[in-house]
Computed example of a mutant assay.
Amino acid sequence: MNRRRRVYEGKAKVLYEGPEPGTLIQHFKDDATAFNAKKHEVIDGKGVLNNRISEYIFQNLNDIGIPTHFIRRLNMREQLIREVEIIPLEVVVRNVAAGSLAKRLGLEEGTPLPRSIIEFYYKNNELGDPIVSEEHITAFGWASPQEIDDIMALAIRVNDFLTGLFLGVGIRLVDFKLETGRLWEGEMMRIVVADEISPDSCRLWDIKSKDKLDKDRFRQDMGGLVEAYTEVARRLGILSENENIITGGPRLVQ
């Protein structure tokens, strides 16, 4: 078997050279990190769950005409994706006060926001991914004004879709992180959704109990991360109801 060429390794994923030009293989690791990787742990089964949840969401986004880098799932941990030029911004869409927004503005966590708020963060681990304005983005050439408009339009559409998707299974979408990239097709370029959308990149609360079903369980030492992610997968119909998801790792519905 030929050794695959590793293109990039991040905190939770590895990118390998794809089978065709313009493609990559995205591998989901079991690593859990928080606070800019100051906290790190390997949690068995996490990568499998994130792969399948992200696959489900990205396929649905593709189906409703929201462009993404996702092509298809290859196996339990890997996806075939289109190679894109990642824009060095994390786009955070907030519907409810939580996390850094609650701390910065002195808001009680769980306070509904007057409207959805979009924030930009500069992707730079050494700097701790600082929050930036549109002025910063255009001044430093990370994205053009038109690209910012396109990114915000994508973020609003994704938020509308995810809010309805999770509401339908009894989950409140508090906030989520989005990454985007430039997809080149000949001389044409368009902005597409990239990276992943999973409980690693969303805050998800049970509507009735307000239990956290996302990576805050790891950040806040609550435990039960795999169980929470499994619950999200079950509600979305990715896992069957009678699975023993801890012993031997999660077995997923094909």
Rank of each mutant, 00 (worst) to 15 (best):
G237M: 12
P19T: 10
A102P: 06
A32W: 02
G45F: 01
M189N: 06
G47F: 07
E20V: 10
H40F: 14
I57S: 01
D214Q: 09
R190Y: 12
L49G: 01
G22H: 08
N159M: 13
S198V: 07
V91Q: 01
V158R: 00
K39V: 12
I171S: 08
E134H: 05
S144C: 10
A233W: 13
R203M: 08
V93R: 00
W184A: 12
V193Y: 06
D211E: 15
T163M: 11
K29L: 15
E9T: 06
T68P: 01
L183S: 05
T180K: 03
I191Q: 02
A155G: 12
R115F: 15
Q26E: 13
K210M: 13
A98E: 08
M76Q: 14
I191C: 01
G99Y: 05
I148C: 07
G248C: 11
L107E: 11
D31Y: 10
N2M: 12
E135S: 06
D206I: 07
F161E: 07
F176D: 09
T33Y: 08
P114F: 05
K208V: 14
T23W: 05
S144M: 08
A32M: 12
Y121P: 06
L236K: 05
L127A: 10
D200F: 06
H69F: 12
R73Q: 13
R52H: 15
Q146V: 07
E196T: 04
P21E: 14
I66K: 08
R52T: 13
N51M: 03
I64V: 15
E20L: 11
H136C: 08
V93N: 03
I53G: 01
S54G: 03
V42K: 11
I171F: 13
W205F: 13
M188F: 10
M188R: 09
N2G: 05
I86L: 11
E147T: 04
G164T: 08
I245N: 03
F58D: 01
I118E: 00
L49N: 02
R77Y: 15
F140Q: 06
